[in-house]
Design a protein around this nucleic acid. Structure first.
Lengths: 107, 107
DNA sequence: CTAATCAATAACCATCGAGTTATGGATCGC
DNA sequence: GCGATCCATAACTCGATGGTTATTGATTAG
């Protein structure tokens, strides 16, 4: 899913958005008002950020009366982990190839 | 280093830039011309992307005559890995707390 | 020496995105 | 019911950014 990776990376690229996600990971369930209180931006801005995070699958929302609770969905980070280890893996394997090559040249 | 994370996430947020980095991870050392041939954008655009990746520490450049070779520096991904596992960790620990709490309530 | 190639920079343009204020639609407290 | 509160959406602004073409400096080839 290259599309998924794109959405993920883009969602996490913004510092305000990343801070909101971090907060949800640390402290769990939060209402929009609670998040807004610490976000340093207006409530509509927070709502928009939450929308982006939700599209990326990073958060879930739960409606309770007139307030909406959001919670982190860290499983959504999986593609990011996969991508990262894949990049490291490619590098590693090329390094191994180099090792083999050097060893062969050594004989 | 929250600054570092920011630079990293932003550098990897752009698909063209991520593709360049992926290519360098897969295939190793590449000249700007070689990267441009596959990038789907102009040479100056590629140079700019390489500049951003370099600022993030994700690539290194090596000058050889009139051409510049770039190579991936996957160690620079470390802060990204740290951040990710930290987020997963926070979530996990809260989950553990919940487990404990539930067990206590169970008695 | 001259022409050609490579990559970086300059200058510019268009789009995107993060922020704002204003507003509306639900829901709760009284 | 009525005013207040919570959150989402609309409409807009503005700076950042990704793209382009043009150019220049450096190096190589002939």
């Amino acid at each position: 899913m290259p599309q998924t990776q794109d959405v993920l990376f883009r969602a996490l690229a913004d510092p305000t958005r990343r801070a909101i996600f971090e907060r949800l990971c640390r402290d769990g369930d939060q209402t929009v008002a609670a998040l807004t209180a610490r976000a340093g931006v207006s409530q509509p801005a927070v709502s928009k950020h939450l929308g982006v995070l939700k599209q990326a699958g990073l958060v879930r929302d739960r409606h309770a009366g007139r307030q909406t609770h959001y919670s982190a969905q860290p499983k959504a980070l999986a593609p990011l982990i996969d991508w990262t280890s894949q990049m490291a893996g490619f590098w590693q394997s090329r390094f191994d190839d180099l090792e083999v090559l050097l060893k062969r040249m050594d004989q």
